[in-house]
Amino acid sequence: MKSPLRLAREKRGMTLDALAKIVGSDVGNLSRIERGVQVPGPQLAERICSEFEGEVNELQLIYPSRYVETPVCSETRQ
């Protein structure tokens, strides 16, 4: 399962290290935010959302489990 932040970051081919430098955070914090273990503070959430220009919003960062991409179940064969 991938969070909206991880999906947006991977879509751009961006590493956690590159994003960390852009938003002024560290890789560990961003990794925990992507996994839903940590919630970003208001300033960091704003910087992340600004970088992704609408691809990611603050609610997705605060409540990632509500927006996680779930795998599609394959149909059962008959």
Rank of each mutant, 00 (worst) to 15 (best):
M1R: 05
K2T: 06
K2F: 04
K2D: 09
R6D: 02
L7H: 00
L7R: 10
A8G: 06
A8W: 02
R9G: 02
R9C: 02
E10T: 12
K11T: 04
K11S: 11
K11E: 13
M14I: 05
M14H: 01
M14Y: 04
T15K: 11
L16V: 03
L16H: 08
L16E: 07
L16S: 03
L16Y: 12
L16T: 01
D17T: 13
D17L: 10
A18G: 02
L19S: 04
L19E: 03
A20L: 06
K21N: 10
I22Q: 03
I22D: 01
G24M: 01
G24T: 01
S25D: 01
D26H: 08
D26N: 15
D26R: 00
V27A: 04
V27P: 00
G28I: 05
N29W: 00
L30R: 07
L30D: 03
R32L: 13
R32G: 00
I33N: 05
E34R: 08
E34G: 06
E34H: 05
R35F: 01
G36N: 06
V37S: 04
V37E: 14
Q38L: 14
V39D: 07
P40S: 10
P40F: 10
P40D: 10
G41W: 06
G41C: 04
G41H: 11
G41A: 05
P42Y: 05
P42R: 11
Q43P: 01
Q43V: 13
L44K: 10
L44T: 06
A45H: 11
E46D: 14
E46S: 14
I48L: 01
I48Y: 03
I48H: 06
S50V: 10
E51W: 07
E51C: 13
E53L: 10
E53H: 10
E53W: 00
G54A: 00
E55W: 07
V56R: 00
N57K: 03
N57Y: 12
E58P: 09
E58Q: 15
E58I: 15
L59K: 14
L59Q: 15
L59W: 11
Q60P: 11
Q60K: 09
L61V: 12
L61A: 11
I62D: 04
Y63G: 01
Y63I: 12
P64K: 07
S65C: 02
S65T: 10
R66N: 11
R66M: 14
R66F: 14
Y67M: 09
V68T: 13
E69Q: 15
E69D: 11
T70A: 09
T70Q: 12
T70D: 09
T70Y: 09
P71F: 10
C73I: 04
C73K: 14
C73Q: 14
C73F: 06
R77D: 12
R77T: 12
R77S: 13
R77L: 13
